[in-house]
Write a protein that binds this DNA or RNA. Structure first.
Length: 584
RNA sequence: GGGGACGUAGUUCAGUUGGUUAGAACGCUGCCCUGUCACGGCAGAGGUCGCUAGUUCGAGUCUCGUCGUCCCCGCCA
């Protein structure tokens, strides 16, 4: 028997046709001599009718059918007397003449419906059942369409998709590597790529000119809602680019990817300097869908108050519209949250219609309370939130970062985030180095091939913290989609940077030997970017976790509950690799 | 590595101050039902209260530990 139609795709126009549909039993409604089966396939659900009087054989078989049985139905599409507006196929039904039960099924651990709220643990363990639900299915379909559109767009712009090795070399920088032991070379390991960074730069040296790849990357770090140990990037590199050329390419790709999801993205994407993002939004990935800009208000705290409140460094504040209704208890909770994200203290001014009250008026005086509210442009009904940081962090505004976190929380809590907006943003002007509290030294803020702003080159040796990189980040609605840079293509500058990072000749050879060699054979100016596609699809699908747009996601402990990986392996396998397990 | 939330029937949850036989809904099983569509009606089955140790006359409930899931900080050049 050959399937003639997707059952979920049948419509009025099919009325009168004899069809064969195949799918799963979504629901059975047995009225005795009349029995209905809702049959589900990729396209949706259709109602099938079995009549004992006219088709006793088919009816008898339908009585055996249970949830998630796999069936084939032969029948005639007919218009219904009374339609069901809830279903896309609601105006027709299939009058069954024959039913084949192709396979039976155990009762599923949860019902295959969109509005069922099974625990994520159960959904991941039985992912094949979860995927039968329309929503996960639609998310994967959207992912496919977005990736397809990206490939088309990149191809049209002259980019070649080139595959790079999955078994490559470990680099000590950056994230922890996933290691793969070599059988042929005992005691040696491949690493799965954290990104194809070096390979794509070598492709530019190789004259490919325009490269892209939709590629899996691997990082052995702790997980989050938007971080999985393996994730998919759109990796791009081009030769002889100006920064604006790369931006234009990515804007074209993103506009078309968004269009696939019915989202209109405006170009060009606005730009913002890193330092402005920190000072105005307290974040290196500001969510621009709402206001509540930060203001530095250190002046409103006299020396005496600072001492009492143990304020170190600056104080940052913002006005939260509608926050004046917050109760004492809510403010206490807010203070707790602030402390949890690194605040020394949080200070509030309520601009209620019946008067202005503040938790710090006694300490700073009425004039300074006014100064505070004026600085934030607060209006009646607002809550002014000011915070100081627990510790000073070299080279950044620690208080602004704390205020930025509260801004996000309050923006969400006070319903100020306009979910219909799609706010892309380019961030530029990143510092080349950042202070490492662990190592007590300046370390590369991005990978060590990131270009250096020309006028800052001379400060490389004298004032490294002032050196800006040619790096940039793409942000959408407060989510970092990716980052890239114009690279260093001259070996003399590369050497100066390595030196500034305190790397010895020997360390450079050991870590980047082959790449440093390649740089000396006529490297063109080049640059690129990598975007996290799981996050792109997540946002466009309206999901809060990238697990919702990944077919087989892992838990926060990096476990695949369905495949039960990772797992132990046979001793023989370990012996071949020359590996012994050390007991903990 | 640290903080928080959660873990009770197949599923989602309720469970009082520690007290008799641990409940509900959905799902499941059987029977009845010719226009249902979250069908309806009747009857029924289904529990290692994550695991472990302890406190107690008595633990789903309290305590220690442990395992698992989620969120956050650190981490993610």
């Amino acid at each position: 028997m050959k399937r003639t139609n997707y059952c979920g795709a049948l419509r009025n126009s099919d009325a009168g046709r004899n069809v064969v549909i195949m799918g799963w039993v979504a629901r059975r409604r047995d009225l005795g001599n009349l029995l209905f089966l809702d049959i589900r396939d990729r396209a949706g659900i259709v109602q099938v009718v079995f009549n004992r009087e006219t088709q006793p054989e088919a009816h008898a078989k339908a009585e055996q059918a249970r949830s998630e049985f796999v069936v084939a139905v032969e029948g005639k599409v007919i218009l219904r007397g009374k339609s069901n507006p809830e279903l896309a196929t609601g105006e027709i039904e299939v009058l069954a003449t024959r039913l084949h039960i192709l396979n039976n099924a155990k009762t599923p651990p949860f019902q295959i419906e969109d509005d069922i709220n099974a625990a994520e643990e159960t959904r991941l363990r039985y992912r094949y059942l979860d995927l039968r639900r329309p929503k996960p299915h639609a998310n994967l379909a959207l992912r496919h369409k977005i990736l397809l559109e990206i490939r088309k767009t990149m191809d049209e712009m002259g980019f070649l998709e080139v595959e790079t090795p999955m078994l490559t070399r470990s680099t000590p920088e950056g994230a922890r590597d996933y290691l793969v032991p070599s059988r042929v070379h005992h005691g040696q390991f491949y690493a799965l790529p954290q990104s194809p960074q070096i390979f794509k730069q070598i492709l530019m040296i190789g004259g490919l000119d325009r490269y892209f790849q939709i590629v899996k990357c691997f990082r052995d770090e702790d997980l989050r809602a938007d971080r999985q140990p393996e994730f998919t990037q759109l990796d791009v590199e081009m030769s002889f680019p100006r920064q604006e050329d790369i931006f234009a390419v990515i804007e074209s790709v993103m506009v078309r990817a968004c269009a696939v999801a019915g989202v209109k993205a405006d170009t060009p994407f606005p730009h913002m300097l890193y330092k402005d993002a920190i000072r105005k939004y307290g974040s290196d990935k500001p969510d621009m869908r709402f206001g509540m800009e930060l203001h530095e208000v250190t002046d409103a705290f006299p020396a005496e108050a600072k001492e009492k409140l143990q304020i170190v460094g600056n104080v940052f504040a913002f006005a939260a519209p509608g926050g004046a209704t917050y109760s004492r208890k809510q403010l206490d909770e807010l203070t707790e949250k602030a402390k949890a994200v690194g605040a020394r203290g949080a200070y509030f001014v309520k601009l209620a219609p019946e008067g202005i009250t503040s938790t710090v008026e006694k300490l700073i005086g009425a004039d300074n309370v006014k100064k505070l509210t004026a600085a934030c442009g607060a209006k009646t009904g607002d809550l002014v939130v000011a915070v100081s940081a627990k510790d000073e962090i070299k080279g950044t505004e620690a208080a602004a970062l704390v205020a930025g976190q509260l801004r996000l929380q309050l923006g969400e809590a006070l319903n100020l985030v306009d979910k219909s907006k799609w706010k892309f943003l380019w961030l530029t002007g990143f510092p080349l180095f950042e202070w490492s509290e662990n190592d007590k030294t300046w370390v590369s803020a991005q990978h060590p091939f990131t270009g250096i702003v020309d006028e800052d080159l001379e400060k490389l040796e004298t004032a490294p913290w002032e050196v800006r990189s040619k790096g940039y980040d793409l942000v959408l609605n407060g989510v970092e989609l990716g980052s890239g840079s114009i690279r260093i293509h001259r070996q003399d500058i590369q050497e100066r940077l390595f030196k500034a990072l305190g790397l010895s000749e020997e360390q450079i050879r050991r870590r980047f030997g082959f790449f440093v060699d390649a740089l000396t054979y006529g490297t063109p100016p080049h640059g690129g970017i990598a975007l996290g596609l799981d996050r792109v699809v997540m946002l466009l699908a309206g999901e809060k976790s990238i697990r919702e747009v990944i077919a087989f996601g892992k838990t926060t402990a990096a476990v695949d509950l369905m495949a039960e990986s990772p797992s132990t392996v046979d001793k023989e396998q370990l012996d071949q690799l020359g590996i012994a397990i050390k007991e903990k």
